[in-house]
Amino acid sequence: MQPYDHNVIMQKPLSELIADELKRKIWNEEIQFGERLLETELAESYDVSRSTIREALKILESEELVVSQARKGTYVADFTDQDVNEMIELRTLIESHAFMQAMTRLESEHTKKLEEIVGKMKEKADENDWNGLFDLDMQFHSYVVGLCGNSRIIKIYDSLQVQIRTFLMHLDRYYSSPQSFYAEHKQLLEALVSNDVHTVNGRVREHIEYVETKLLGQKNDIKFKEV
């Protein structure tokens, strides 16, 4: 690995930039669930001090993406069946409510922004770029939640971003193609614009529950642990 470029415009502290890159490696499955993260190796890889790596790992630990075990080290978190169930339930509760609230506040500028995100999703679908699609999925849902008008809901949802993105990395196996994933978001946008409460609620629940619930049936393949 090439030394980390210290000349990057420092919009974030170096530890945050490294934490972001480690997240990306986990989502790309370059780093596996349960894998040990060694401070010394990471410090050498990124050409930074161990204290910087320690700070980056603390960020990931606060986001529940890694766990530290006394006298054993730091590991990428394994997720249990209960973790999956709780995430699906919480997403369904938050997003079904937030989408319906956002629908009443949707203006032309918001629709234009969402159309732009969905348009980019089509490009990523055509490129067969699942990671790009999942990043845009997060943008789409976060933008809609941000329109709900409830600052506490928005704050809670923001705190879940890393965990939600981690679950998304496994969903490609449940779609027939990237185009079907893109089409689902196009339908979500159409439901929002329709101003039909029942359609919006149904689309959101189907999007979150129907596909993600399948994760539970495949937990051994993706290394989820039983509680």
Rank of each mutant, 00 (worst) to 15 (best):
T74E: 03
A98S: 15
D137T: 10
N85G: 08
H97S: 12
M138P: 01
E116A: 14
V66M: 09
A77S: 11
T92S: 14
Q82W: 10
E123W: 04
K120C: 11
R91T: 03
K120V: 01
F79G: 06
D83N: 15
T104N: 08
K112C: 01
A102R: 07
T104I: 06
G73I: 04
E89D: 11
I94R: 03
N128Y: 03
H97P: 01
K58N: 12
T80C: 13
S68C: 04
G73F: 00
T80M: 09
E89G: 06
K58I: 05
R71Y: 05
L114W: 08
N85K: 12
M103D: 06
D126N: 05
L65A: 00
E61K: 15
D135A: 14
Y75E: 06
L60T: 02
T111L: 08
K124T: 13
L136W: 11
E64T: 09
S108K: 15
D137M: 01
S68N: 02
M100E: 14
V67G: 09
D129C: 04
L93G: 02
E123P: 06
R105F: 00
N128A: 05
E127S: 11
T74L: 06
A102M: 08
M87L: 15
T92D: 09
N128I: 01
R91M: 08
I94G: 00
E61T: 11
E116K: 15
K112V: 13
D137W: 00
L93P: 00
L90D: 03
K113M: 15
Q82R: 05
V84W: 00
M103R: 13
V66H: 05
E61M: 09
K120D: 15
K72M: 06
Q139N: 14
V76P: 02
L90I: 00
A70M: 00
V118L: 12
M103I: 05
Q139E: 14
E127K: 13
I59W: 04
G119N: 05
E116L: 05
S62H: 05
S96H: 03
A102C: 11
K112F: 11
A77W: 00
S62W: 01
G119C: 04
M103Y: 01
M103E: 12
I94N: 04
A102N: 09
I94H: 00
D135V: 10
